[in-house]
Design a protein around this nucleic acid. Sequence first.
DNA 1: AAGCCGGGGTA
DNA 2: TACCCAGGCTT
Length: 353
Amino acid sequence: MTVDTRNAFATDLLAWFDRHGRHDLPWQHPRDAYRVWLSEVMLQQTQVTTVIPYFLRFVGTLPTLRDLAAADEDTVLALWSGLGYYRRARFLHRAAQICVEQHQGELPRDFDALAALPGIGRSTAGAILAQAHGLRFPILDGNVKRVLTRYHGIHGHPGQSAVEKVLWQHADAHTPDERVADYTQAIMDLGATLCVRSRPLCSGCPLAAGCVAHRDGLTAQLPSAKPSKAIPTRSTVMLVLRDANKRVLLERRGPQGVWSGLWSLPEATDHDGAWRAAQQLARIDDAQALAPFIHVFSHYRLQVEPLLFDDATAHRAIADNPSLRWCDTGEIAALGLPAPVRSLLQSLQGIMQ
DNA sequence: AAGCCGGGGTA
DNA sequence: TACCCAGGCTT
């Protein structure tokens, strides 16, 4: 008996992949371990179309693992700026340095050693070994979870540990011995192009004949939605201190909390605090309230009230503080800033020149 | 097990 | 508006 007849799931999927899969993604040509790793990390909770320009810019600046390991963190964060989940960039950077120090400058091919690196969990380690080296390891990302919950008719939110455990078992059972790299790409492509979240295109699906959700008309119910809960709204005042040369005072955020390590604006909890903070930082005489906006995170809303202090005169004391710096437009462009802060500063520049 | 961590796309 | 997305780490 051949492998093919025992595993119709993989056989049918691979036949579909040869004709309809994605074969021209940037990290597929060339497909080395460094590029696969970088793409997998960028793609964590982030869609392909978003990642592609970041990936191209990143490998254009840092083409090899050793280049990444030798880069300074500000460069890495600037390349990541706007992509979100910035801890991924720091883990990537640290993992590259570990590879140089402990693995001869290459990603380890051993699963446990690979998964021990920061930012590489079970699924990402499996994806790297399967795609870069053709080794038989399952993956379980959002695409695979969607395909498998439908194919096997599995109810319950996939983020729930009991459901996830079952999904890993199915993922492993379906993974073939041959063509593992193509299979891994194939099941993700199926999830990304046919077995999509809403209105899946079952008529073109190579797995429809064995799919429980398709048979029972449950494709709209699976995968089960996450139980919803109300999210809180927090508020902050962002200080835009601008000197006579139109340079803006940026502050590097601390190691904890959102946007950690990124360059952002000084903040205060309210307007009184903002005045006190501004007077600590510079000589200022008046403030102008800018248009407030709300930035939405997955776990809370952040209401931002920007306050503009123009013609500020820097206190000499802050020149010695490495986490504070006055930046012109060019310097801002080269730093890692949270997307809404970058957007705020750009709109300010556009309106007030 | 649940919370935390971004930003963009979509219905 | 609410949810989801090529998840992993921390508590």
